[in-house]
Simulated assay, not measured.
Amino acid sequence: MSQTPGTLLAALRAEPPLVQCITNYVAMNIAANVLLAAGASPAMVSDAEEAGEFARIAGALTVNIGTLSAPFVEGMHAAIDGAKQAGRPWVFDPVACQATTLRRRVSAELVARRPTIIRGNASEILSLAGESSQGQGVDGRDDVAVSEEAARRLARESGAVVAVTGPEDYVTDGTRSARIWGGSPWMPLNTALGCALTGLCGAYAAVAKDGFDAAVGALAHYAVAGTRAHEGAVGPGSFAPRFLDALHAIAPEELDKEHRLRGHEGAPA
Rank of each mutant, 00 (worst) to 15 (best):
T116D: 09
A122V: 04
K84G: 03
K257T: 10
R13L: 02
A203H: 08
T198K: 05
I250E: 00
I250N: 02
L247Q: 13
S184R: 12
D143L: 15
A96W: 03
G217R: 14
G137K: 14
G166H: 12
G135E: 11
W181A: 15
A215N: 01
Q134E: 10
D245A: 15
L12Y: 05
L261E: 10
N33P: 04
H230R: 12
A48H: 01
D245F: 03
D173Q: 05
L61S: 07
P71E: 12
D210Y: 03
L102R: 11
G137H: 01
P236N: 13
V162H: 09
A203L: 08
I22C: 04
G39K: 12
T165K: 04
V95Q: 08
G174P: 06
D210A: 09
D173T: 06
I65L: 08
H77V: 12
A58E: 12
A112L: 07
A229E: 07
A246N: 09
Q3K: 13
P167L: 04
A215M: 02
V161S: 00
L9N: 06
V234Y: 04
A99V: 11
A38G: 12
A251Y: 00
H230E: 13
C97K: 05
R113Y: 03
T23K: 12
G66K: 03
W186I: 01
E74G: 01
P115A: 13
I125P: 01
V162E: 08
A86S: 10
T165N: 14
K209D: 15
E109Q: 15
H264E: 14
E50T: 08
G183S: 09
P252H: 01
A249V: 02
R152H: 08
P185A: 06
L128Y: 02
I30C: 02
S41N: 10
P42Q: 14
E265H: 15
S41C: 10
P17Q: 10
P16H: 09
L255H: 05
M1A: 11
A218H: 05
E265F: 06
D245W: 04
L247R: 11
T7S: 13
N190Q: 14
M1T: 07
S41W: 02
R179S: 09
G217Q: 05
E74R: 01
G174Q: 00
R103M: 03
V144A: 09
K209W: 00
S132W: 00
R114V: 03
L154F: 02
D139K: 11
S2K: 11
L247A: 13
L244A: 05
A246K: 10
G159Q: 14
Y25W: 05
W186M: 14
G6S: 11
A122M: 04
N121D: 12
S69Y: 07
G266W: 03
A251N: 05
R156E: 09
P89F: 01
E53K: 13
S2Q: 05
A86Y: 06
G266F: 02
L154A: 01
L9A: 07
A206E: 07
Q3I: 02
A163P: 04
E168P: 00
V144M: 09
L35A: 13
P42S: 11
P42L: 10
A155K: 08
E254D: 15
R104W: 00
W90I: 13
V207K: 15
V73G: 07
V95G: 06
A10G: 13
I80C: 04
A122H: 07
A108M: 03
